[in-house]
Design a protein around this nucleic acid. Structure first.
Lengths: 346, 346
DNA sequence: GGCGAATGCGCAAACGTTCGCGCAATGGAA
DNA sequence: TTCCATTGCGCGAACGTTTGCGCATTCGCC
């Protein structure tokens, strides 16, 4: 006859189990497992060994309840139509695990966040928030701010009460502009995005500044709606222009739109780069495909995510840290779509 | 001089706060908020009103600790190189929220799951698991099984101790085969996947059965590695074949490979569908692009995810429910890549 | 030989919910 | 009037962890 208290034969090992087994107090187990130096090295070793033997796994909810920390990072990810967000998410998952952070998906997709959804931020006591969505409703930001949840925007410029890490959009776009200028281009089109995309705005500005600085006429501005389809449609318009007024180079502020542009030109028999040059921005893997060979600026995704998680971690430890914005320089990747290098074209 | 107990001026409202405010016991508040009929309708109404006023939000960790249910679904999602997984994930996020489920990302990407990662399943007490990865290591399945965590595979056939929901791959592939047969095709190539993809295997088999049944010679089988690049390379091989031996139709078992196939043919001047027909499987949005116009079978993503979540929900409530496999029929979408409809080609 | 500081650990109170019981009050039936 | 059911709610013990505080011991030092 065994004692009945353990209702199910095999229950999961807890700190209590360990403490009984080791003949110490639960608090000692807790401290030993997190390497508290107040516990003697021998005891610590003994307890870790025991934990391994019994297959002990800490109970996240209990920890959260007691400590106020969940180890959860809420993520809001943008439209699935742009592969960049997918890459970003995957990179975040990859990097978060080793840091002891888990990702709780709060919202995904192009639409705004519903109120009921934002509740999860509170319910699950997320320690921080990673946002890549275009539309961050201010009430979500308010919820985070009033609960001391640090927010880091990735690939978005900071708003009130949040930090941000972006690619150096101005510099990258200027590099692209310079590349095209060096090849003798003087008439440009920019396939832009709506004003709600801060990233798109910056890239557009960086490009415009450089080409107007160089004395070119202001580029033709067309809204590509941040989608492949938008880029496609805009390129059809460009292709339909009389040759004399048609720009000789197109800057699509994101690769996904550039793909649409390239495909549309091909459908219309406009040759890239012979008839027109095309450049993008993001550095999606697909930009390297033989059918695109797109010149672009590759965002340093790994570094950006690493920085973002680091900033989050720092602010979780020290909530008083001021908001911060860092921008990382991307790499210009020259491919066929922008035409021959200047040495050969001149 | 206020009493000090509330350390911070404004603390979050808890059930205790509400109980004091309403003059009832905490247990009553708990029951009232979940609509327990043992509490009088008036009391229930009063408490819900109060909860709204004070901005009460339940504390998920406390609930988990006490009830053993977390409301969390662990998700394992496959490679970011295939947009299908992205679509699937987004659909899951969309549908889970209204059901009161949140998605905790356990693992993302093509690689296998590390042990340390799988721990999250236990630590966070996930109620169920949604898996779309190609490789489900058996130890993860074991963890779930031994802890009573129901597992549903999506777009994968069931393994031990898990349910599954898939598209009817056999039927869909047979439909594609029939379509091509009706147009007079007799020599086929299949761009397949490795044996680890159960879905790919089924599609291949469904196609093969139909065409051999129709008396055709066995198709040329080429491994496309489930990637765009793989499809591209295989199509280059096909294009290099002497015309007499070259198949007249290619079935890529996933759209992403079909895109590679189409682009490779275009690069080689092989015209689709005049010189060769191409069909895919998945129904990715990109299949509709003017540069692809890919005939494919569209997986009923919304229904599949809905079914998966429903099965999970049912098993969370009744752990003894037997494992189950459901397959949903997709829609054949005929586009340009498969050639003219039979009525005009004959 | 006495004093203060380490060193190493235990006590017990949180954290916010859930849920099995149990208890009082009310009502109807006998 | 007594008895039993029903209705409506409260009591209190979990759930597993963290953490501030405090208490012994041991050691070095004057």
């Amino acid at each position: 006859m065994d004692e009945l208290p353990p209702p199910l034969a095999a229950r999961r090992a807890t700190i209590i189990t360990l403490s009984r087994e080791a003949g110490v107090a639960p608090s000692t187990v807790s401290r030993a497992l997190k390497g508290d130096t107040r516990i003697s090295p021998e005891t610590r070793a003994r307890i870790s060994r025991l934990a391994k033997e019994l297959g002990y796994t800490p109970h996240a909810s209990a920890r959260t309840l007691s400590s106020g920390r969940s180890g959860l990072i809420g993520v809001v990810v943008g439209s699935s139509a742009n592969p960049f967000y997918t890459e970003l998410l995957h990179e975040a998952v990859r990097q978060a695990a080793p840091l002891g952070m888990r990702l709780l998906i709060i919202h995904a997709g192009p639409g705004p966040i519903e109120n009921s959804t934002a509740d999860a931020l509170l319910q699950y006591q997320v320690d921080g928030c990673l946002m890549t969505s275009v539309e961050l409703p201010s009430h979500v930001a308010a919820i985070c701010a009033s609960n001391g949840v640090p927010v880091v925007m990735v690939n978005r410029v900071a708003r009130m009460n949040s930090s941000a890490v972006t690619c150096d959009n101005l510099f990258g776009a200027a590099q692209l502009a310079q590349l095209l200028l060096d090849q003798g281009h003087r008439r440009f089109a920019v396939v832009r995005t709506s004003a709600s995309s801060s990233t798109g705005q910056e890239r557009e500005r960086g490009f415009l500044e450089r080409v107007t600085e160089a004395g070119c006429e202001p580029p033709l501005l067309l809204d590509g709606r941040s989608t492949y389809e938008g880029g496609y449609e805009r390129a059809l318009q460009i292709a339909a222009l009389p040759a004399a007024r048609r720009p000789t180079a197109v800057f699509a502020v994101s690769d996904i739109m550039a793909f649409g542009v390239l495909d549309a030109f091909r459908m219309r028999g406009v040759r890239v780069p012979q008839d027109i040059s095309v450049v993008g921005f993001d550095g999606l893997p697909a930009a390297a495909r033989p059918c695109y060979e797109l010149t672009t600026v590759e965002q340093p995704l790994g570094a950006m995510v690493g920085r973002a998680l680091g900033m989050l971690q720092a602010r979780i430890g020290h909530p008083s840290l001021p908001d911060e914005t860092v921008s990382l320089r991307g790499a210009l990747i020259v491919r066929k779509s922008s035409g021959s290098p200047p040495s050969r074209s001149r």
